[in-house]
Every structure is written in structure tokens, then in C-alpha cells.
Amino acid sequence: MDVFMKGLSKAKEGVVAAAEKTKQGVAEAAGKTKEGVLYVGSKTKEGVVHGVATVAEKTKEQVTNVGGAVVTGVTAVAQKTVEGAGSIAAATGFVKKDQLGKNEEGAPQEGILEDMPVDPDNEAYEMPSEEGYQDYEPEA
């Protein structure tokens, strides 16, 4: 019985440690998101679009440190934060509304985080759909 109880105690310690790591990862992701939003706020009209992409990228980098179902929630929060940063930029006159959601080359930025393969159960990952990809044929 002692062996059984000791095993359960060790398992509990492992769960607590994993929860603490997840909590730490979420806190880091939130900190990076805040950094990115402050970065966007300090940019001029020309830099705002690039700044919004930076927020998304920093958040995406930190999301990889967070495991399990938390990833889905962090990704949703990050996307809403990026959308909010863009709205703030438009409201303050840093950028025109028609410039939001495009990178410096004018290509749409939507789907940055949505296409990231995420499995809350950590069982399997699927690649994003290939609808947006084109076949590449090298020139002879």
C-alpha cells in the first residue's frame, strides 16, 4: 500500500510541476504579447503594419512553449490582441483601416495563427491545408 501511495504522490508532483510550467509559459506569452502591443503603439504610420505582424510573430513563438489545451486559448487571445492593436492603430490615425491585415508588401496577414497546427491532446499534428499553395516548377 505504501508503494501505491508513494507512486500516487510522485504522479501528483509531476502534474503540479507540469501545471506550473504551463502557467509560466502562458505568463511569458502574455508578456511578449504586451511587449508587441507597446511596440505597435510606438510606431509611426509606416511601421504600424509591420508592428502588428511582430506582435503576432512574438506571440506565436511563445505559444510553442505552452502545451496542451492552453495553446488553443493563448492563440485565440493573441489573435484578438493583434486585431485590437490594429483597431487602436486605425482609431489613433497611425494607419488607414484599409491597410490593416496586410503586410508591407500588401499581402493579407489573416491566418497567421489560424494555420498553425495545434492539437490540445498532444496526440497528432496535421499540416495546414494546401489550398493556398501553388506547385513550383523550376525553369529549365
Rank of each mutant, 00 (worst) to 15 (best):
S42W: 15
K43C: 10
E83F: 03
A76R: 09
G101H: 10
V40R: 01
V55H: 01
A17F: 02
K34C: 07
A19Q: 01
T72E: 15
E137T: 05
V118M: 09
G7Q: 11
D98M: 05
G93W: 10
D135W: 07
V37T: 01
Q79I: 08
G47E: 04
V118F: 12
A11T: 04
A91G: 06
E110V: 09
A19H: 05
A19T: 02
A124Y: 14
V74N: 01
K58I: 14
Y39I: 09
N103R: 07
K32R: 10
E110W: 04
A91N: 07
G41T: 13
K96R: 07
V63L: 11
F94I: 07
E46L: 03
M127L: 09
G84L: 12
E110H: 03
V118N: 12
H50S: 12
A90I: 05
K6P: 00
E61Q: 09
L113G: 11
S87P: 06
E28W: 04
A91D: 04
T72D: 12
A78S: 03
E131G: 04
E83R: 05
G51K: 05
A27N: 08
E130I: 06
K34G: 02
M1L: 00
K80D: 02
K10R: 13
P128S: 04
G73Y: 08
S9F: 11
E114K: 11
A140K: 08
D119A: 11
G14Q: 15
G67C: 11
A91F: 13
V26T: 01
V118G: 10
G36I: 15
V77K: 02
N103L: 09
I88W: 14
T64L: 09
E83G: 06
A89Q: 05
A19R: 02
D135Y: 06
E13K: 06
G47W: 10
G84W: 10
N122F: 10
T59H: 02
A91K: 04
A30G: 01
L100W: 02
E104W: 05
D2L: 15
K96Q: 07
Y39S: 05
Q62K: 07
V71M: 14
E137N: 04
T75R: 06
M127F: 10
D115I: 05
G93C: 03
K32P: 01
V16K: 06
V118W: 05
